[in-house]
Design a protein around this nucleic acid. Structure first.
Lengths: 214, 214
DNA sequence: AGGTGTGAATTAATTCACAGCA
DNA sequence: TGCTGTGAATTAATTCACACCT
């Protein structure tokens, strides 16, 4: 087990390995190997072993890995083995869709939904009621909100981030197409539909003229 | 201008630079520098110049970059200067939210919405009507679908991907929490809400105990 | 003078080969 | 014997310094 700094790319791959383990589990597989994981995650077996080695030894030499055990370990490493208290800021189309998303409750315990628009305030959702943005700071400290989800327009995103940071948030999940500035102890993850899209259209554009024979 | 292979990380950063340029434009800034771009994109000025140099020379020595010109160039590089014909497969909660998302039309021209569930088939959306999955292959070839958006459950995602590939799709935007296998000429971008989340909870978990003084 | 564009130096990430256990 | 875990070698990405152009 290494104590070195873990590359960001490794963390992203851990998520992929977790997906693969879930898929193996669905298929009833209980024991696997770095080779099988590598194949399904579309990386090399070296990479799988190196990535896991940053965090510990989860396999058995000569045998392989236990699917449920490794899955549990990865969920622990990634912080997915507990629920995080969440506030959603910006209850437009996207914010409401996320608030109603059934999978949300697996990792989050939503404890607040906020919007500046008085017309939206008071609206009932499957998991709560929309509150005025003015309540944000008080809610974060009193309800112990840990993660803030930003779903406001790009031009308003930084101000919301500032308020969340001042209120003592631990991390921000940013759905706005904006680059947020936060102090180093408040990580931001951009869940950017348009970024994924742009990478895809970039690669598709480069592919023009290439042929492939299966 | 270099002809080397462009790192994936560079492509992701181009999207960030585009965000920054949009923000500068909103603020009425028409001329910028690698230093300003770097500051707002939270990278170094060296990095900005190196990233742009993979594709060409877009600035003026001693002066800097024109905001609208660089924005246009980045949009061209990223394939965002045209609309791509899109099919959405899987019209559950997420698929329908995406189909109704107003920003979708900026980059996509949706030409088909598909679902296996007969109860959903025929339902009217703001931009069209849900069709049976059986229509998929014919729609792809007859309507010239270029990008397939997968919003089905993880266990059904690979089969949908296979059908899209066989029908001649150019690229896949995958919203399902699954690792898809496609031939090399069909790029897949995972727009994975849960992956962003997992990276965030990972970093937040590591932060425990750290303090920061502004 | 001033800020870009780029080859060279440095640093980081990946790949490999094999030691170490079950 | 077989597959993991890891230091060493290799390759890729980032950082830097400065030549170059306006």
């Amino acid at each position: 087990m290494a104590a070195e700094r873990v590359p960001d790319a490794t963390v992203s791959r851990l998520v992929t390995y977790l997906r693969v383990l879930e898929s193996l589990e669905r298929r009833g597989v209980v024991r696997t190997s770095s080779e099988q994981l590598a194949e399904e995650a579309q990386v090399t077996a070296f990479q799988v072993r190196k990535d896991l080695a940053y965090f510990g030894s989860y396999g058995t030499r000569g045998v392989g890995y236990s699917v449920p055990l490794l899955k549990r370990e990865l969920r622990n490493i990634l912080g997915l083995s507990r629920r995080w208290k969440l506030a959603i800021v910006g209850m437009g189309r996207l914010g409401q869709a996320l608030a109603d998303y059934p999978g949300l409750g697996e990792v989050f315990e939503p404890v607040g939904f906020f919007d500046v628009d008085p017309a939206k305030v008071g609206k009932r959702l499957s998991r709560g009621v929309i509150e005025p943005l003015a309540n944000l700071e008080r809610a974060v400290s009193e309800r112990g909100v840990e993660i803030g989800l930003i779903a406001v327009p790009a031009e308003a995103a930084q101000e919301v981030a500032d308020r969340l940071v001042r209120a003592g948030i631990k991390g921000i999940l940013n759905f706005a197409p904006a680059v947020l500035e936060t102090p180093p102890h408040v990580p931001v993850e951009n869940v950017d539909f348009l970024a994924g899209l742009a990478r895809l259209t970039y690669f598709v554009s480069r592919n023009v003229g290439e042929e492939w024979v299966g």
